[in-house]
Write a protein that binds this DNA or RNA. Structure first.
Lengths: 333, 333
DNA sequence: TTGTATGCGTTATCAC
DNA sequence: GTGATAACGCATACAA
């Protein structure tokens, strides 16, 4: 476990640490001869600058934290790709942190931000309260992506969840469905509430107000989608269509329907949300609301960079487009 | 962007920084009265210790990096959960790093290890050469998990890939299949080569040596599985069974078969590898070789902790059990 | 062009 | 029990 420092390099090169530092940082004011010699001993000693020292001195880390509830939901993978691409292009590294959907772990990682271990954070499913988030955001660079909290005055990139859910509802209504179940989640994300509201609004306009029993709650897992669908199917009047606020849960619902011997879409139609890659691999392929995941990630990182560079006075909210992708789970091909 | 330091706290409390530090680290030798007062001003100033300073001084970060090719493959999510659970239990944090399957990004993150920004690294799909990996491992704590490189003298947790693939092959042979295709990947992971070898060995023992044309290569994506399956189906003599070295690719193959109007398992049987959660959600449910993902993660982190604590003189290799899970894609239920 | 000296924020070793 | 102070490894203002 060797650990040569800048001092070792200086000594071995017969120069001062300042000169070595200059070589390290490509400072112009260093003679070509010395530069070469120093670079040589750096290779020789296999010297690696200690980032703790450097970052402490520079008070920047060039590190971004991306907080997500779990990597188990493939929804996040394209978003992360977008974040990374923009970050790398700008000389930043990205690290992913699983919050496990708990306030505690989220606070822990936000603590690393407060403790200067990272230059900024992108939150993909904030769990802490809006006020706390607002407070942190006042002192440190933070951006919310996709999911967001009530009352948080924090930059945000999202789609219009209300309008998106309306598209899904209108599609089902246009197919003649009258009994429609929803699989939502118990989170207090505004994104999810908006989807519920949007979906409801269309049903009401169609004179088919949503009854409480047609609303089931899951936790974004396959199993919870499966379980919720079974609950909906246990009603006296089975729904003829199910809308899930996440593809993963919609796919769990597909499995439940299969187990019950119901045909999709003939007996029951299903609409998901997110358009994860899996939604076009399952059978039947899933009709779903597509979020521009890659762009959401890129835009969030752009916003964060602006925040870090102080170009943003106050929180900004950016809304990207969405699209209903119609596949086999609602219409026979 | 406030940034109160230990000095500010000391000044405001009317004590020295040493005392504040003692309070921070629960040093026993501090009077109850002073402790309370200091804690008070810490709250008041919303003081957050700067981890760069602390880590620099302590020469440890309590941070672990988990390097994976992409979070798009759900295979990794349970492994990561195992790593995190053990890490948290021992006071370490885990951050995930996408290498995008490139040597460059992997080297970059390993650089952070060399530069003391993290205490150790778990590699889930190493891309750099075995010798380079061996060299790094000689100086820094590194553990390979699941996939591993030829010639790397580095700690490793894995399953017996050879034996596991043999189970899959024997299963297909026992079902009477004679023309069997394989979807593998072009990586130079020993794990994958062993699977190929194991599978081949059974075919040979059955007098059905694998012809080159029955071997297709993908890149672990749905699409590549889909594409590879189409290639296999284009052969004059179509295979009646397909073995994919990853569930994701196997599921892509299922889709290709559906498109070609072929019934699974009646026309073509399919076996995957990994047992990701999705494999029991798709239709038909996938027969697959199950890796003990959570345990693999836990064990890898255990090994890394031992390495960090210097309890491990030289690289250790641990082999965990695997299991063939038989589902609808090979046998009608 | 290079060296000296200082400070980044913390912990730890001394003294007292 | 507490306070100076050195040190961690680096970058930079200022001298030379």
């Amino acid at each position: 476990m060797s650990a040569s420092t800048i001092q070792d390099v200086a000594k071995a090169s017969g120069v001062s640490v300042a000169t070595v530092s200059r070589v390290l940082n490509n400072s112009a004011t260093v003679a070509e001869a010395t530069r070469e010699m120093v670079l040589n001993t750096i290779k020789q000693l296999d010297y690696q600058p200690n980032l703790l020292g450097r970052n402490l001195r520079r008070t920047e880390t060039r590190l971004i934290l991306a907080l997500l509830p779990t990597i188990a939901n493939p929804f996040y993978s394209r978003i992360v790709k977008g974040i990374e691409d923009v970050a790398h292009k700008n000389g930043y590294n990205v690290m992913l942190c699983n919050t496990d959907s708990t306030k505690e772990r989220e606070q822990l990682y936000l603590g690393l931000l407060k403790n200067r271990l990272a230059d900024g954070v992108i939150l993909m499913a904030p769990r802490i309260e809006g006020e706390e988030l607002t407070a942190i955001s006042a002192d440190f660079p933070v951006v919310q992506c996709c999911e967001y909290k009530e009352g948080a005055k924090v930059s945000l990139v999202r789609i219009d969840n209300y309008a998106a859910a309306r598209k899904a509802a209108k599609h089902l209504i246009s197919l003649g469905h009258k009994k429609i179940g929803i699989i939502s989640s118990h989170s207090d994300f505004l994104s999810i509430l908006r989807r519920e509201e949007g979906f409801r609004s269309v049903l009401e306009e169609a004179g088919l107000p949503l009854e409480d029993q047609y609303l089931a709650y899951g936790d974004y897992s396959f199993k919870s989608g499966h379980r919720s669908a079974l609950a909906l199917l246990a009603l006296k009047e089975q729904p003829t269509a199910i809308f899930a606020i996440s593809d993963v849960m919609a796919i769990g619902a597909l499995r439940a329907l299969r187990e019950k011997g119901l045909k999709v879409p003939d007996d029951v139609a299903v609409v998901g949300f997110d358009n994860i890659s899996f939604s076009s691999m399952c059978d039947p392929m899933l009709t779903t609301v597509s979020q521009p995941k890659y762009d959401l990630g890129c835009t969030a990182m752009d916003l964060l960079l602006k925040t870090i560079q102080g170009e943003l006075k106050e929180p900004l909210e950016i809304v990207l487009e969405n699209e209903l992708v119609i596949r086999e789970s609602t219409i026979r091909s």
